[in-house]
Simulated assay, not measured.
Amino acid sequence: MKSFGSTRRSFAPWNDPTSKPFISFRNVTKRFGDFTAVDDLSLDIYHREFFALLGASGCGKSTLLRMLAGFEQPTSGEIILDGQSLAGTPPYRRPVNMMFQSYALFPHMTVEKNIAFGLRQDGMPKPDIAARVAQMLKLVKMEKFAGRKPHQLSGGQRQRVALARSLAKQPKVLLLDEPLGALDKKLREETQFELMDLQQDLGLTFVVVTHDQEEAMTMADRIAVMSQGRVAQVATPAEIYEAPNSRFVADFIGDVNIFDGKVSSVENHVVQIETDIGFTVRMHSNETPAVGAQAGCIVRPEKLRVSRAAPADASANAVQGELWDIAYLGDMTVYHAKLKNGAMVKASSLNAVRAVENPLGYDEPIWVSFDEDAGMVLKD
Rank of each mutant, 00 (worst) to 15 (best):
K338G: 03
A314E: 10
A337F: 01
E274V: 05
V256Q: 03
Q272T: 12
I298W: 11
V270C: 11
M332I: 08
D325E: 15
L329S: 11
S315M: 12
G330M: 12
E287W: 03
L304K: 02
I273C: 07
V299N: 04
P311R: 05
A314F: 04
L339K: 07
A293T: 08
A337L: 09
Q294K: 11
T333I: 15
F279C: 02
E287T: 02
A318P: 02
L323F: 03
A318W: 05
R300I: 01
S265N: 15
I277P: 00
V319C: 03
G342M: 07
A290N: 13
I258K: 09
H284P: 00
E322D: 10
P289W: 06
S285P: 03
A310F: 10
V306H: 02
G292T: 07
V263W: 08
S285G: 08
D276W: 09
T275P: 02
F259L: 15
A312P: 00
K346W: 02
F279A: 01
V281G: 00
A343Y: 05
P301T: 10
K338F: 03
L304E: 00
H284N: 09
K338R: 15
V291L: 13
A312F: 02
D331A: 14
A312I: 04
N341W: 06
A343Q: 06
V345I: 11
V319N: 01
S307R: 07
A314I: 12
E274Y: 01
A314C: 06
S264F: 15
P311F: 02
I258G: 06
T288C: 09
G330N: 10
A310W: 12
K340E: 14
A314Y: 05
T280C: 09
A312E: 07
G321C: 06
V270Y: 07
V306G: 01
N286C: 01
Q320D: 10
T275R: 03
L329D: 10
T275A: 07
Y335G: 04
A327S: 14
I273V: 14
D260N: 14
I326R: 13
T333R: 09
E322A: 12
W324P: 01
P311S: 04
K262C: 09
E287F: 03
V256A: 08
N341P: 01
A290Y: 07
R308Y: 07
G261R: 10
N257P: 11
H284Y: 08
L304R: 02
I277S: 06
L304H: 01
K346M: 10
V291C: 14
F279Q: 00
Q272V: 11
M283N: 00
T280S: 10
I298P: 00
E322N: 13
T288A: 14
S307A: 12
I277A: 03
D260P: 01
S285A: 11
